[in-house]
Design a protein around this nucleic acid. Sequence first.
DNA 1: ACAAAAGTGTTATTTGTACACCCATGC
DNA 2: GCATGGGTGTACAAATAACACTTTTGT
Lengths: 237, 237
Amino acid sequence: MPYTYEYPRPALTVDCVIFGYENGRPLQVLLIQRAHDPYAGHWALPGGFVDMDEELHTAALRELEEESGMVNVFIEQLYTFGRPDRDPRGRVVSVAYYALVHLPDHPVRAASDARQVGWFSVDELPHLAFDHAGIVEAAINRLRGKLRYQPIGFELLPNHFSLSQLQELYEVVLGIPLNKRNFRTRILKMGVLEEVGKQEGVAHRPARLYCFDKEKYEQLASENYPNLLRRGVNFEI
Amino acid sequence: MPYTYEYPRPALTVDCVIFGYENGRPLQVLLIQRAHDPYAGHWALPGGFVDMDEELHTAALRELEEESGMVNVFIEQLYTFGRPDRDPRGRVVSVAYYALVHLPDHPVRAASDARQVGWFSVDELPHLAFDHAGIVEAAINRLRGKLRYQPIGFELLPNHFSLSQLQELYEVVLGIPLNKRNFRTRILKMGVLEEVGKQEGVAHRPARLYCFDKEKYEQLASENYPNLLRRGVNFEI
DNA sequence: ACAAAAGTGTTATTTGTACACCCATGC
DNA sequence: GCATGGGTGTACAAATAACACTTTTGT
């Protein structure tokens, strides 16, 4: 049953850039292999058309689950891509979302519209359908920017994690090595980690284990927002 | 002549949040008074439907000009708003753009679809149509964030400006007072201002005038990107 | 001389950065 | 006792924050 409008309308889709982190391994991106044209057989981001009565982020989560089986993800809007020629089927505007997940907690399986599903290292991506390579690139930049000033990432570690694990996470996502001493000083001085125990049964000095104190973080963040502004210009140079 | 699709499609619009700055006056936002329903007579952001073959940002600029007469604006994508009930006409998804302009350089006039056009101080906005109040709020937050780490804003001043004028700009956009001594030290140490003369004919010590050295800025920014990453976590608390 | 706004000196304190070093555990 | 990571001391440089002060102009 067809739908008719007085003026033409672009189609509206959502796409998801899901980054997976696991214990020091390179940062991964979740891709699906398309079952249908256009780009049948090509790797692409999970995504699809928005239903008429659903929120955009709901559509993104639905498509993610339908195509990859992944659930329980906190996604965030990235950018809306709308070049008139980005899809051979005609005008398709896509709202992209992104997320960073703890890879071992998020099993995937190929489902509707996807032949396969797979994780790919961010610097060894296959050729992607549509403008998805550009979307992934935008997502990486956004993720790195965000990691620097928001406590994203603590969910990617075991409940109790060591500072070395945390540092490793930062190094993997940022793609550069960090200085151990300074990383520790800095992160501990922020006062958002709570010590909760010690490693056991390791063949070296056991690490202290921490958990993230979310309440404390939120309290500090709101207390200090005025100072942040007061600092004024910065330019990041 | 009607357009028919196999599946229903949301309508797609763009909206523009244009901030205007002028010489120490409070930050303003450009609004239009709607001529037609829904919300006829209400104030709203300039915006409208996206044509089938135009880029999203082109649509935003076109609607901005059609409704307010404003041209030559550098807009940037803000966020896409898609709550299913945000428009009484049915499902309408809107891609919002924002910009900051030098108010005196951008004359406006009411045109199609708008009874009037006007500038409103950001903290004395009228009641807005649709979810536009939320869009404006999101834009203010983004603008303040951006101002802190990007040299946006130099176009809002005369070609040659004094440090006091620059400070005033920052104070108006951020909405807080800044310390004169520290502002100056900081901004001069960045090395992106070039001294180009002196004020004349003022009844006080004449100020040095500067211009923004864009090349220098870009050089410094690219040189220092690795350091930025290396600093790692920061959390802005 | 005075008002007005521009511009500077200085200092205590906090951060940043870079190395080298010590510590606790299992084997 | 040794390999393996975990964890610390320290010191110089730089940035931040805060306050009061001097300078230059027109009238």
